[in-house]
Design a protein around this nucleic acid. Structure first.
Lengths: 251, 251
DNA sequence: TAAGATTTGTTCGTATGTATC
DNA sequence: GGATACATACGAACAAATCTT
């Protein structure tokens, strides 16, 4: 595997090696558990020192493309990028870009009702039970800011779970990503005090009605219930005037 | 900066160092061009060898969080994640997940009309001219598969540009990301032959009408034109995909 | 132009840790 | 437990880039 780009431009050697390995994986269409050549093998293949190869491996690892194990039979292995890692990497992109509540809800209003509609009548009883279990985690209005924060995070877990039931991976990812961003918000800003009784009651009522519509297979109703839910949720969030995300998210 | 996690779990040292540096950046709320401690500084701070520190830096670099320069006044600097890098990292996530045309268009149908509507009457004459210039790149129907592919990529550039005019960074990113995926599709699948005259004529007519609506500030019309555009575009794409599949089987 | 200083980039040799047999 | 195979980490040296004088 000779260098195909002799006067190669600006990038560091590890970066180029990482690119080359990536291409190699694609060309040979390696699958999830497949093993990459060992470090010593790569050293001689690329004619570079151990440190350089290792840095390249770290690059791939940071992107979630490989995992490595020590010991005999160990080495580096192709691994799918996990959903969590993808979300973390994407969240970094928005670190400096200051998403507003309005920005997020503009998408939620469009996407969440769509998810609800497409899932109506297509969820198993197990899946519906799972959603009900999440709703059951907040049976009574919160009595403190702490409790309310927990409830809101749980409520977002409801949406994230629902999203992951979708058979559209792109739709599922985007919706789930937004739920995660909003969850992180609640952790790092004291967003939910004072406790807001209205948020609790409306939110819970909507989610219960939504589950009923999903079970009944009533797509139109599921859609409109979710739309109304998003509508009030945004108004309440806006009133609380959150500021979004000022941190890197650890995977 | 001593180790706060003595029995630290499974992760490698470079990964932990990278995390620590990330946290450090957040805590000190460093901005885009700010400089990180030098390698030698970090070596003594973390009590680790040069190679280890460098691997940590590569992890951060791979995520787009830092850049590094040599020489006096050089070092590692905080850098915003670029849009392109974020897209590439996210694309890795979908590498194994095989998005279908239907998956992508389910989102395009929802998001693109929204973008069109929110931008109506809010674009400068310069921006409108830029869009017109893109449309002008395909003044006549394509006469070969090559030419048609180029036209379709240009047409996707139209949507990407429009998306980036949006003042909602999240919406802009998602739409622009989809356009890029579809562009890559055209490279890796021979999706656009044989030349399809209908795609050309309808697509061009829609985009011209859309620009008119945007200029006139007619949000409702911009929305409906874009919706119709997405509708026919998806049907044509689906038909062509079917055609490609059949050809593949036949061959 | 040239020399020197500073900082990242790369190499090599060696030693340690870890999992399999 | 011992041998083996592999990644992981260290330390010292040298190379390359880039700024200053």
């Amino acid at each position: 595997m000779p260098e195909t780009t002799p006067p190669s431009p600006k990038r560091s050697r590890p970066a180029r090696v990482a690119e080359a390995i990536k291409d190699w994986v694609v060309e040979h269409s390696l699958k999830k558990g497949d093993r990459l050549p060992s470090e010593t093998e790569l050293m001689s293949r690329f004619g570079m020192a151990k440190g350089t190869i290792r840095e390249a491996m770290r690059i791939l690892e940071a992107q979630g493309l490989i995992e490595s194990r020590t010991g005999p039979g160990g080495g580096c292995f192709v691994g799918e990028v996990t959903e969590d890692r993808a979300k973390a990497l994407l969240a970094n992109y928005f670190y400096f870009r200051e998403l507003s509540i309005g920005n997020i809800y503009q998408l939620r209003r469009l996407l969440e009702p769509e998810i609800a509609a497409t899932l109506a009548g297509r969820l198993s009883e197990d899946q519906l039970a799972e959603l009900e279990a999440i709703v059951a985690r907040y049976p009574a209005p919160a009595r403190s800011a702490e409790e309310e924060r927990d409830q809101h995070v749980a409520s977002l877990a409801f949406h994230r779970r629902l999203a992951n039931f979708s058979d559209n991976p792109l739709l599922a990812f985007v919706v789930s990503f937004m739920a995660r961003i909003l969850s992180d918000l609640t952790v790092y800003r004291r967003l939910y005090d004072p406790p807001n009784r209205e948020l609790y009651e409306k939110g819970r009522a909507y989610q219960e009605e939504l589950i009923a519509a999903l079970r009944a297979g009533d797509a139109a109703r599921a859609r409109s219930v979710m739309a109304a839910h998003m509508d009030t949720a945004e108004r309440l969030m806006q009133a609380q005037e959150a500021q979004v995300m000022r941190r890197f998210i650890a995977e």
